[in-house]
Amino acid sequence: MNHNRMETALVVDDHPLFCDALALTLRSVAGISEIRKAATLAEALEALQRDGAPDIVVLDLNLPDVTGLDGLIRLRNAAGVPVVVVSSMSEERLISSAMRAGAAGYVPKHSEREVFRTAFDRLRRGESFVPDEFLDSASGDDDGSVKRDEVLIRMATLTHQQARILDLIKAGMLNKQIAYELSIAETTVKAHVTAIMRKLGVQSRTQAALLASETSFSHVLQREA
């Protein structure tokens, strides 16, 4: 059995024309026969619950309901399969952070078809892919970038439910409100919050929310030259 077969893909992108073009590219250069589509993170998560996981997820980072790399982390944890980012944002700092957040590969949207072919050949072999011109700008970079990478690594350890709860904490919700929103017991929320704080290495909900904000695009790119 080919462990790294790629016959089905979930494309998460809110631009219908690009979605259609990408679907054609994936069929022709990657041999993917079944393409599912979602326009938002919420739609993608619903599709995973409804239809099960595809062989690979193709994700545009810039979605209507996503402001940072937490969307990538949540989707990767929920899918349990490789997630390759295909984005119009191609800053080295963002590519570096996305790879640390668990992306299997990163392909700029403007790439030629051969780049997509190479990327999916590598992904099928279980390897990662970044553009040839990419230089890991985080290595030897300022302390802020190092700290942000540490945060991403910690965030990547959160379960899907923990990531949802952290998102609601960032929105200012109390445990009782989170329990109502997710239809779970308040004691369950408390247990999750404790686990979240332990994984993130913080002492309070406020610190957890502040730390999570480090994964936003604006924070990741704020020192981009």
Rank of each mutant, 00 (worst) to 15 (best):
D70V: 02
G126S: 01
V84A: 11
R164C: 12
S97I: 13
L135M: 11
S33G: 10
A21M: 05
D142G: 08
D143I: 10
A47C: 15
T40F: 02
A138N: 10
A185Q: 04
S97Y: 11
M89H: 13
G102V: 11
L221V: 03
Q222S: 15
D121E: 08
S137Y: 06
Q161L: 14
S137V: 03
F18R: 13
P54E: 07
D142Q: 14
V220D: 09
S90T: 15
A47D: 15
L10I: 09
P54M: 06
R164F: 10
E133M: 10
S137L: 08
A53C: 09
N62S: 00
L135Y: 07
R76E: 01
L10Y: 05
L182V: 04
R205P: 05
E46C: 13
H192S: 08
E181P: 05
A104T: 12
A23N: 11
V57F: 03
D14L: 13
P131M: 09
E92T: 14
R198W: 01
D142N: 09
P16Y: 10
L10V: 09
E7S: 02
P108C: 10
A101S: 15
L158E: 04
A101I: 15
N62L: 07
P131E: 06
G52N: 11
Y180S: 06
R36P: 09
A78N: 14
I32T: 10
E112H: 06
V202A: 02
H110W: 07
D143P: 12
E7A: 03
A209K: 12
I184M: 08
A212E: 01
A171V: 08
R27K: 09
K199T: 12
T8M: 08
L94S: 11
A47P: 11
S145Q: 15
M155I: 07
L22V: 00
S96T: 07
E133Y: 03
G68R: 01
L48A: 06
D55R: 06
F116R: 08
A9Q: 12
N175M: 12
V29G: 02
V189G: 03
A23Y: 09
R74M: 01
A39K: 00
I35K: 10
N4P: 14
Y180C: 09
V86K: 15
S216F: 11
V86L: 12
P82E: 12
E7M: 07
S97D: 12
S111V: 15
F134N: 05
K190Q: 09
D14S: 08
H192M: 13
S218V: 04
L17F: 14
L63V: 00
I178Y: 00
F134W: 08
K170C: 04
K37W: 07
G68L: 06
M197F: 03
G68V: 03
E7G: 07
P108M: 14
T188H: 13
L221S: 00
R124P: 00
D65M: 03
V58I: 02
V57S: 02
N4C: 15
F120Y: 08
E43N: 13
T118N: 04
G201V: 05
A191F: 07
I73Q: 02
S96G: 10
L75D: 06
M6V: 00
A225S: 15
L45V: 02
R148P: 06
M89V: 13
L94N: 13
Y106C: 15
V193Q: 05
D136K: 09
A209N: 03
A23T: 11
F129H: 05
A101V: 14
A212S: 11
K147C: 14
R100V: 06
S28W: 13
L61G: 04
S218G: 02
A53T: 10
D136W: 01
